[in-house]
Amino acid sequence: MPWVLRGLREGVVTTRYPARPDPEADAWPGGIDVVERESTASDGEPENVCPTAAISRGDDGRLRLDRGRCVLCGRCVQARPDLFSVHRGTETARLSRRTLVVPESPDDDDEELGRLREDLGRRVRALRRSVHIRHVDAGSDGSDEWEVLALGNPVYDIHRLGIFFTASPRHADVLLVTGAGSLGMAEPLARTREAMPQPTVVIAAGTDAISGGLVSPSYATADGVGRMLPVDVWVPGSPPSPFSLLHGILLALGRIGEGDRRGRTDEADRRGRTGGGRQEGRA
């Protein structure tokens, strides 16, 4: 049978996300939430179960979890299901490193976030439906590349959104960086960014890229790429799922919101989807 017929065999396998919710994405364990309740003396020290020190106790005595350090090993949920729970959903990318910490502290500066969004909006306004991404691996474990590559397969088919991966930094609007920031890639990464037309947008993809994850501390990495170049969008995950990557890219382009930043339950998951996404289908 010729290949063209094979290609037609299964009909459409492509997700409708972000125009429509995707059940796979909504059910996916994309992060860890801290169960909001008053802390008691019997809590002990749950921060010790975390292998990457993502869990901390704030000055107000509340537990916080930094998704930028979390590698989703699930030990906290296993050890203390009363304090931690699995977050269903993949809209985990954020514009500010600080807001990767859940639950957000009430005095978080929404003004700053607004400024970030505005600044980014100015830079991506001209891109519309022709967005070219240059990917650079700065010391990943190899799995992140698989997930980035998956965006091109028929299931995610990122081309339908007018987004393309490009081999040349000269054509690139967005720089997508994976890996813990190995020092050997510092120069090539800087040169790649230098070679891109201004303005650029930088996405740090994966917990390794955000904080170095389990690889940090090391004499050979910068504990994340944030110390190597300014980052606009942070996508947690070890590695981030293709849906999370897609969310991060669309967030960078201002075509989708940050999801429910307070974290949501399974029930709310099905309802809540932020405004930007819906327009995708019609456009």
């Binding site: 292998p51 691996d137 010391g139 990943s140 890996g179 813990a180 190995s182 050997g184 890639m185 090539p188 389990l214 690889v215 501390p217 090391s218 004499y219 050979a220 990495t221």
Partner: peptide, 17 residues
């Protein structure tokens, strides 16, 4: 370019980590 110093990083970890 991709050397991450993994061997050094292992040191001092518990087997579970």
């Amino acid at each position: 370019g991709k050397h991450r110093g993994i061997e050094k990083r292992f040191e001092g970890m518990t087997p579970y980590d």
